[in-house]
Simulated scan of single mutants.
Amino acid sequence: MKRGGQEIYVGPLGRHSCHLIKYFESMHGVSKIKEAYNPATWMLEVTASSQEMMLGVDFADLYKNSDLYKRNKALIAELSTPRPGTKDLHFETQFSQPFWTQCMACLWKQHWSYWRNPAYTAVRFIFTTFIAIVFGTMFWDLGTKVSRSQDLINAMGSMYAATLFLGVQNSSSVQPVVAVERTVFYREKAAGMYSAIPYAFGQVFIEIPYVFVQSVFYGVIVYSMIGFEWTAAKFFWYFFFMYCTLLYFTFYGMMTVAITPNQNVASIVAAFFYAAWNLFSGFIVPRPRIPIWWRWYYWACPVAWTLYGLVASQFGDIQTKLSDDETVEQYLRRYFGFKHDFLGIVAAVIVALPVMFALTFALSIKAFNFQRR
Protein backbone atom coordinates (compact mmCIF):
# COMPACT_ATOMS: atom_id res chain seq x y z
CA MET A 1 0.00 0.00 0.00
CA LYS A 2 1.11 3.53 -0.70
CA ARG A 3 0.57 6.63 1.40
CA GLY A 4 -3.14 7.21 1.87
CA GLY A 5 -4.00 3.51 2.06
CA GLN A 6 -4.19 2.93 -1.70
CA GLU A 7 -3.29 -0.53 -2.95
CA ILE A 8 -0.40 -0.85 -5.38
CA TYR A 9 0.07 -4.64 -5.21
CA VAL A 10 -2.13 -7.41 -3.84
CA GLY A 11 -0.99 -10.88 -4.71
CA PRO A 12 1.45 -13.69 -3.98
CA LEU A 13 5.06 -12.88 -3.14
CA GLY A 14 6.65 -16.12 -4.35
CA ARG A 15 10.06 -17.46 -3.46
CA HIS A 16 12.39 -14.58 -2.60
CA SER A 17 9.51 -12.24 -3.60
CA CYS A 18 9.90 -13.24 -7.24
CA HIS A 19 6.27 -12.49 -8.17
CA LEU A 20 6.40 -9.06 -6.54
CA ILE A 21 9.66 -8.24 -8.31
CA LYS A 22 8.36 -9.47 -11.66
CA TYR A 23 5.23 -7.33 -11.33
CA PHE A 24 7.06 -4.05 -10.73
CA GLU A 25 9.94 -4.74 -13.13
CA SER A 26 7.37 -5.21 -15.90
CA MET A 27 6.45 -1.53 -15.61
CA HIS A 28 8.20 0.89 -17.92
CA GLY A 29 10.90 2.97 -16.25
CA VAL A 30 11.17 0.95 -13.00
CA SER A 31 14.81 0.09 -12.28
CA LYS A 32 15.78 -3.56 -11.95
CA ILE A 33 16.61 -4.98 -8.55
CA LYS A 34 20.30 -5.47 -7.83
CA GLU A 35 21.81 -8.81 -6.96
CA ALA A 36 21.33 -9.80 -3.28
CA TYR A 37 19.34 -6.62 -2.63
CA ASN A 38 16.48 -6.68 -0.11
CA PRO A 39 13.21 -6.94 -2.13
CA ALA A 40 11.23 -5.01 0.50
CA THR A 41 13.68 -2.12 0.46
CA TRP A 42 13.77 -2.13 -3.34
CA MET A 43 9.99 -2.12 -3.56
CA LEU A 44 9.72 0.88 -1.21
CA GLU A 45 12.35 2.76 -3.19
CA VAL A 46 10.88 2.20 -6.65
CA THR A 47 7.31 3.00 -5.55
CA ALA A 48 8.11 6.14 -3.58
CA SER A 49 6.21 9.34 -4.36
CA SER A 50 9.33 10.85 -5.87
CA GLN A 51 9.59 7.92 -8.30
CA GLU A 52 5.94 8.34 -9.29
CA MET A 53 6.55 11.99 -10.08
CA MET A 54 9.70 11.19 -12.04
CA LEU A 55 8.02 8.44 -14.06
CA GLY A 56 4.72 10.31 -14.37
CA VAL A 57 2.65 7.37 -13.17
CA ASP A 58 0.38 6.43 -10.28
CA PHE A 59 1.09 2.91 -9.09
CA ALA A 60 -2.40 2.67 -7.57
CA ASP A 61 -3.97 3.36 -10.97
CA LEU A 62 -1.61 0.92 -12.65
CA TYR A 63 -2.65 -1.78 -10.22
CA LYS A 64 -6.37 -1.10 -10.78
CA ASN A 65 -5.89 -1.46 -14.52
CA SER A 66 -3.80 -4.64 -14.27
CA ASP A 67 -4.80 -8.24 -14.92
CA LEU A 68 -3.79 -9.04 -11.33
CA TYR A 69 -6.45 -6.67 -10.01
CA LYS A 70 -9.10 -8.25 -12.24
CA ARG A 71 -8.13 -11.75 -11.09
CA ASN A 72 -8.33 -10.66 -7.44
CA LYS A 73 -11.79 -9.18 -7.94
CA ALA A 74 -12.98 -12.35 -9.64
CA LEU A 75 -11.58 -14.46 -6.80
CA ILE A 76 -13.30 -12.26 -4.20
CA ALA A 77 -16.61 -12.54 -6.02
CA GLU A 78 -16.24 -16.30 -6.22
CA LEU A 79 -15.38 -16.71 -2.55
CA SER A 80 -18.15 -14.31 -1.49
CA THR A 81 -20.83 -16.55 -2.95
CA PRO A 82 -21.83 -19.24 -0.41
CA ARG A 83 -21.96 -22.79 -1.62
CA PRO A 84 -25.39 -24.42 -1.98
CA GLY A 85 -26.61 -25.97 1.27
CA THR A 86 -24.28 -23.95 3.52
CA LYS A 87 -25.35 -21.58 6.31
CA ASP A 88 -23.83 -18.44 7.75
CA LEU A 89 -21.58 -18.92 10.76
CA HIS A 90 -23.67 -18.34 13.87
CA PHE A 91 -23.06 -18.37 17.62
CA GLU A 92 -25.91 -18.46 20.11
CA THR A 93 -24.15 -16.10 22.51
CA GLN A 94 -21.70 -13.25 22.08
CA PHE A 95 -19.26 -14.71 24.59
CA SER A 96 -18.04 -18.29 24.79
CA GLN A 97 -18.67 -18.68 28.54
CA PRO A 98 -21.86 -18.12 30.55
CA PHE A 99 -22.30 -14.98 32.61
CA TRP A 100 -21.44 -16.51 35.99
CA THR A 101 -18.30 -18.16 34.63
CA GLN A 102 -17.23 -14.77 33.27
CA CYS A 103 -17.79 -13.24 36.72
CA MET A 104 -15.70 -15.88 38.45
CA ALA A 105 -12.95 -15.60 35.85
CA CYS A 106 -12.82 -11.81 36.25
CA LEU A 107 -12.79 -12.11 40.03
CA TRP A 108 -9.95 -14.63 39.87
CA LYS A 109 -8.04 -12.36 37.50
CA GLN A 110 -8.49 -9.40 39.84
CA HIS A 111 -7.40 -11.55 42.77
CA TRP A 112 -4.02 -12.18 41.17
CA SER A 113 -3.78 -8.63 39.90
CA TYR A 114 -4.23 -7.24 43.42
CA TRP A 115 -2.04 -9.89 45.01
CA ARG A 116 0.80 -8.93 42.67
CA ASN A 117 0.34 -5.22 43.29
CA PRO A 118 1.80 -4.60 46.76
CA ALA A 119 2.38 -0.97 45.85
CA TYR A 120 -1.38 -0.60 46.18
CA THR A 121 -2.55 -3.31 48.57
CA ALA A 122 0.32 -3.53 51.07
CA VAL A 123 0.95 0.20 51.17
CA ARG A 124 -2.72 0.77 51.94
CA PHE A 125 -2.50 -1.48 55.02
CA ILE A 126 0.74 0.13 56.18
CA PHE A 127 -0.68 3.62 55.70
CA THR A 128 -3.89 2.69 57.55
CA THR A 129 -1.97 1.24 60.50
CA PHE A 130 0.22 4.34 60.70
CA ILE A 131 -2.77 6.69 60.59
CA ALA A 132 -4.57 4.60 63.21
CA ILE A 133 -1.62 4.92 65.59
CA VAL A 134 -1.35 8.66 64.93
CA PHE A 135 -5.06 9.22 65.55
CA GLY A 136 -5.04 6.93 68.56
CA THR A 137 -2.22 8.83 70.23
CA MET A 138 -3.60 12.21 69.18
CA PHE A 139 -7.07 11.50 70.62
CA TRP A 140 -5.91 9.24 73.43
CA ASP A 141 -8.67 8.22 75.86
CA LEU A 142 -11.13 10.81 74.56
CA GLY A 143 -13.90 8.24 74.43
CA THR A 144 -14.15 8.08 78.21
CA LYS A 145 -14.42 11.85 78.65
CA VAL A 146 -18.05 12.86 78.38
CA SER A 147 -18.35 15.44 81.13
CA ARG A 148 -18.01 18.47 78.83
CA SER A 149 -19.44 19.32 75.45
CA GLN A 150 -15.95 20.12 74.19
CA ASP A 151 -14.89 16.54 74.94
CA LEU A 152 -17.71 15.27 72.75
CA ILE A 153 -16.73 17.62 69.94
CA ASN A 154 -13.12 16.44 70.22
CA ALA A 155 -14.20 12.80 70.01
CA MET A 156 -16.39 13.62 67.05
CA GLY A 157 -13.40 15.38 65.50
CA SER A 158 -11.44 12.13 65.60
CA MET A 159 -14.24 10.40 63.70
CA TYR A 160 -14.56 13.26 61.23
CA ALA A 161 -10.81 13.40 60.56
CA ALA A 162 -10.51 9.64 60.14
CA THR A 163 -13.48 9.48 57.78
CA LEU A 164 -12.09 12.09 55.42
CA PHE A 165 -8.43 11.17 55.79
CA LEU A 166 -8.79 7.46 55.10
CA GLY A 167 -11.76 7.86 52.78
CA VAL A 168 -10.06 10.31 50.45
CA GLN A 169 -6.90 8.19 50.55
CA ASN A 170 -8.85 5.10 49.50
CA SER A 171 -10.68 6.95 46.76
CA SER A 172 -7.55 8.56 45.35
CA SER A 173 -5.35 5.47 45.49
CA VAL A 174 -7.85 3.22 43.70
CA GLN A 175 -8.20 5.57 40.72
CA PRO A 176 -4.89 4.74 38.96
CA VAL A 177 -5.50 1.03 39.55
CA VAL A 178 -8.92 1.13 37.93
CA ALA A 179 -7.64 3.34 35.11
CA VAL A 180 -5.06 0.69 34.18
CA GLU A 181 -7.52 -2.18 34.60
CA ARG A 182 -10.05 -0.40 32.38
CA THR A 183 -7.51 -0.26 29.55
CA VAL A 184 -7.00 -4.01 29.89
CA PHE A 185 -10.76 -4.48 29.97
CA TYR A 186 -11.21 -2.64 26.67
CA ARG A 187 -8.74 -4.95 24.97
CA GLU A 188 -10.07 -8.17 26.47
CA LYS A 189 -13.70 -7.26 25.85
CA ALA A 190 -12.89 -6.55 22.20
CA ALA A 191 -11.34 -10.01 22.02
CA GLY A 192 -14.64 -11.50 23.23
CA MET A 193 -13.31 -12.74 26.57
CA TYR A 194 -16.01 -11.26 28.81
CA SER A 195 -18.57 -8.47 28.99
CA ALA A 196 -18.63 -5.28 31.04
CA ILE A 197 -20.72 -6.45 33.99
CA PRO A 198 -18.49 -9.45 34.90
CA TYR A 199 -15.48 -7.15 34.79
CA ALA A 200 -17.22 -4.67 37.10
CA PHE A 201 -18.24 -7.57 39.35
CA GLY A 202 -14.64 -8.66 39.73
CA GLN A 203 -13.36 -5.12 40.26
CA VAL A 204 -15.95 -4.39 42.94
CA PHE A 205 -15.88 -7.66 44.85
CA ILE A 206 -12.09 -7.89 45.04
CA GLU A 207 -12.08 -4.66 47.06
CA ILE A 208 -14.46 -6.01 49.71
CA PRO A 209 -12.01 -8.30 51.59
CA TYR A 210 -9.16 -5.80 51.33
CA VAL A 211 -11.29 -3.00 52.75
CA PHE A 212 -12.52 -5.38 55.46
CA VAL A 213 -8.96 -6.10 56.61
CA GLN A 214 -8.16 -2.40 56.42
CA SER A 215 -11.17 -1.65 58.64
CA VAL A 216 -10.08 -4.29 61.14
CA PHE A 217 -6.60 -2.76 61.37
CA TYR A 218 -7.96 0.71 61.87
CA GLY A 219 -10.97 -0.14 64.04
CA VAL A 220 -9.19 -2.27 66.63
CA ILE A 221 -6.27 0.15 67.07
CA VAL A 222 -8.28 3.36 67.21
CA TYR A 223 -11.22 2.02 69.20
CA SER A 224 -8.95 0.73 71.95
CA MET A 225 -6.64 3.77 72.06
CA ILE A 226 -9.38 6.39 72.04
CA GLY A 227 -11.18 4.43 74.73
CA PHE A 228 -14.71 4.11 73.45
CA GLU A 229 -17.01 1.97 75.55
CA TRP A 230 -16.08 -1.71 75.19
CA THR A 231 -19.40 -3.33 74.45
CA ALA A 232 -20.05 -5.71 71.60
CA ALA A 233 -22.85 -3.57 70.19
CA LYS A 234 -20.90 -0.31 70.18
CA PHE A 235 -17.77 -1.89 68.74
CA PHE A 236 -19.85 -3.53 66.03
CA TRP A 237 -21.48 -0.22 65.16
CA TYR A 238 -18.11 1.53 64.99
CA PHE A 239 -16.59 -1.16 62.80
CA PHE A 240 -19.70 -1.37 60.63
CA PHE A 241 -19.81 2.36 59.90
CA MET A 242 -16.06 2.59 59.22
CA TYR A 243 -16.15 -0.45 56.94
CA CYS A 244 -19.07 0.83 54.87
CA THR A 245 -17.52 4.29 54.76
CA LEU A 246 -14.22 3.03 53.38
CA LEU A 247 -16.17 0.90 50.92
CA TYR A 248 -18.23 3.76 49.54
CA PHE A 249 -15.18 6.00 49.27
CA THR A 250 -13.34 3.25 47.37
CA PHE A 251 -16.28 2.61 45.06
CA TYR A 252 -16.73 6.35 44.60
CA GLY A 253 -13.14 6.60 43.35
CA MET A 254 -13.79 3.72 40.96
CA MET A 255 -16.98 5.36 39.76
CA THR A 256 -15.24 8.66 38.96
CA VAL A 257 -12.81 6.79 36.72
CA ALA A 258 -15.64 4.96 34.97
CA ILE A 259 -17.53 8.14 34.09
CA THR A 260 -14.50 10.16 32.94
CA PRO A 261 -12.03 9.64 30.09
CA ASN A 262 -8.89 9.42 32.23
CA GLN A 263 -7.50 9.49 35.74
CA ASN A 264 -6.67 13.20 35.67
CA VAL A 265 -10.26 14.22 34.98
CA ALA A 266 -11.47 11.69 37.55
CA SER A 267 -9.26 13.28 40.21
CA ILE A 268 -10.68 16.73 39.48
CA VAL A 269 -14.27 15.50 39.63
CA ALA A 270 -13.62 13.59 42.85
CA ALA A 271 -11.88 16.55 44.51
CA PHE A 272 -14.91 18.77 44.00
CA PHE A 273 -17.14 16.38 45.91
CA TYR A 274 -14.54 15.84 48.64
CA ALA A 275 -14.80 19.56 49.38
CA ALA A 276 -18.60 19.52 49.25
CA TRP A 277 -18.82 16.48 51.53
CA ASN A 278 -16.43 18.13 53.95
CA LEU A 279 -18.53 21.29 54.10
CA PHE A 280 -21.87 19.52 54.54
CA SER A 281 -20.65 16.74 56.83
CA GLY A 282 -22.36 18.29 59.85
CA PHE A 283 -19.14 18.82 61.79
CA ILE A 284 -18.00 22.22 60.54
CA VAL A 285 -21.59 23.47 60.55
CA PRO A 286 -24.05 21.24 62.47
CA ARG A 287 -27.23 20.35 60.61
CA PRO A 288 -29.60 22.54 62.69
CA ARG A 289 -27.39 25.55 61.86
CA ILE A 290 -27.16 24.92 58.12
CA PRO A 291 -29.38 27.39 56.19
CA ILE A 292 -32.66 25.75 55.33
CA TRP A 293 -32.09 26.15 51.59
CA TRP A 294 -28.90 24.08 51.83
CA ARG A 295 -30.03 21.54 54.42
CA TRP A 296 -31.26 19.13 51.76
CA TYR A 297 -27.67 18.50 50.69
CA TYR A 298 -26.77 17.44 54.21
CA TRP A 299 -29.01 14.41 53.71
CA ALA A 300 -27.34 13.74 50.33
CA CYS A 301 -23.84 13.91 51.83
CA PRO A 302 -22.34 10.45 52.52
CA VAL A 303 -19.90 11.77 55.14
CA ALA A 304 -22.81 13.28 57.09
CA TRP A 305 -24.43 9.84 57.36
CA THR A 306 -21.14 8.34 58.52
CA LEU A 307 -20.68 10.94 61.26
CA TYR A 308 -24.31 10.57 62.29
CA GLY A 309 -23.88 6.83 62.69
CA LEU A 310 -20.53 6.96 64.47
CA VAL A 311 -21.49 9.66 66.97
CA ALA A 312 -25.02 8.44 67.64
CA SER A 313 -23.89 4.84 68.14
CA GLN A 314 -21.12 5.75 70.59
CA PHE A 315 -22.68 8.64 72.54
CA GLY A 316 -26.34 8.88 71.55
CA ASP A 317 -27.62 6.79 74.48
CA ILE A 318 -25.38 8.17 77.25
CA GLN A 319 -27.31 9.80 80.07
CA THR A 320 -24.29 11.35 81.80
CA LYS A 321 -24.90 15.01 82.55
CA LEU A 322 -22.64 17.66 81.13
CA SER A 323 -21.44 20.71 83.00
CA ASP A 324 -24.50 22.72 81.93
CA ASP A 325 -26.89 20.14 83.46
CA GLU A 326 -27.77 18.68 80.06
CA THR A 327 -27.29 14.99 79.30
CA VAL A 328 -25.05 13.82 76.48
CA GLU A 329 -28.05 12.44 74.63
CA GLN A 330 -29.93 15.73 74.93
CA TYR A 331 -26.91 17.75 73.84
CA LEU A 332 -26.42 15.65 70.70
CA ARG A 333 -30.10 15.97 69.82
CA ARG A 334 -30.12 19.73 70.33
CA TYR A 335 -26.77 20.75 68.87
CA PHE A 336 -26.18 18.19 66.11
CA GLY A 337 -29.63 16.72 65.60
CA PHE A 338 -28.36 13.17 66.28
CA LYS A 339 -30.86 10.64 67.62
CA HIS A 340 -29.87 7.19 68.82
CA ASP A 341 -33.17 5.65 67.74
CA PHE A 342 -32.45 6.76 64.15
CA LEU A 343 -29.51 4.35 63.86
CA GLY A 344 -31.46 1.75 61.89
CA ILE A 345 -32.18 4.17 59.06
CA VAL A 346 -28.61 5.47 59.14
CA ALA A 347 -27.30 1.91 58.85
CA ALA A 348 -29.56 1.24 55.87
CA VAL A 349 -28.33 4.37 54.09
CA ILE A 350 -24.69 3.54 54.85
CA VAL A 351 -25.18 0.12 53.25
CA ALA A 352 -26.98 1.64 50.26
CA LEU A 353 -24.18 4.13 49.51
CA PRO A 354 -21.47 1.62 48.47
CA VAL A 355 -24.09 -0.38 46.59
CA MET A 356 -25.14 2.75 44.71
CA PHE A 357 -21.57 3.74 43.81
CA ALA A 358 -20.72 0.16 42.77
CA LEU A 359 -23.79 -0.08 40.53
CA THR A 360 -23.00 3.30 38.98
CA PHE A 361 -19.46 2.09 38.32
CA ALA A 362 -20.74 -1.07 36.63
CA LEU A 363 -23.31 0.75 34.48
CA SER A 364 -20.79 3.44 33.51
CA ILE A 365 -18.22 0.84 32.47
CA LYS A 366 -20.89 -0.75 30.30
CA ALA A 367 -22.25 2.48 28.81
CA PHE A 368 -19.13 4.60 28.28
CA ASN A 369 -16.17 3.80 26.06
CA PHE A 370 -13.35 6.33 26.11
CA GLN A 371 -11.01 4.52 23.75
CA ARG A 372 -9.28 6.84 21.31
CA ARG A 373 -8.61 4.19 18.71
Rank of each mutant, 00 (worst) to 15 (best):
A119W: 01
A119D: 03
Y120Q: 05
T121R: 10
A122M: 13
A122I: 12
A122D: 10
V123A: 08
V123N: 06
V123D: 01
F125K: 03
I126A: 12
F127C: 04
T128M: 03
F135S: 04
G136K: 03
M138T: 14
M138A: 14
F139I: 09
F139P: 06
W140M: 08
D141L: 06
D141M: 07
D141R: 11
L142C: 01
L142F: 09
G143S: 02
V146P: 00
N154D: 06
M156G: 14
M156D: 05
G157K: 04
M159E: 09
M159R: 01
M159Y: 05
Y160A: 13
Y160T: 06
T163N: 15
L164S: 12
L164Y: 05
F165C: 12
L166W: 03
V168M: 15
S171P: 05
S172I: 15
S172F: 15
S173T: 15
S173P: 04
V174N: 05
Q175A: 14
Q175Y: 08
P176Q: 06
V180E: 14
T183I: 11
T183H: 13
R187P: 01
R187Q: 14
E188V: 03
E188D: 10
A191V: 07
A191M: 15
S195M: 02
P198Q: 08
A200N: 12
A200V: 11
A200Y: 08
F201L: 06
F201V: 08
F201N: 08
F201R: 05
Q203N: 13
I206G: 02
I206M: 07
I208L: 13
P209H: 10
P209S: 10
F212C: 07
Q214I: 07
S215Q: 04
V216T: 07
F217L: 12
G219L: 01
V220W: 04
I221P: 04
I221A: 06
V222Q: 00
Y223I: 09
Y223R: 06
Y223V: 11
S224D: 13
M225Y: 02
I226Y: 01
I226S: 02
G227Q: 12
F228M: 15
E229M: 08
A233M: 15
K234P: 10
K234F: 09
F235L: 08
F235E: 07
F235H: 04
F236I: 04
W237N: 14
Y238E: 03
F240S: 06
F241W: 12
M242A: 11
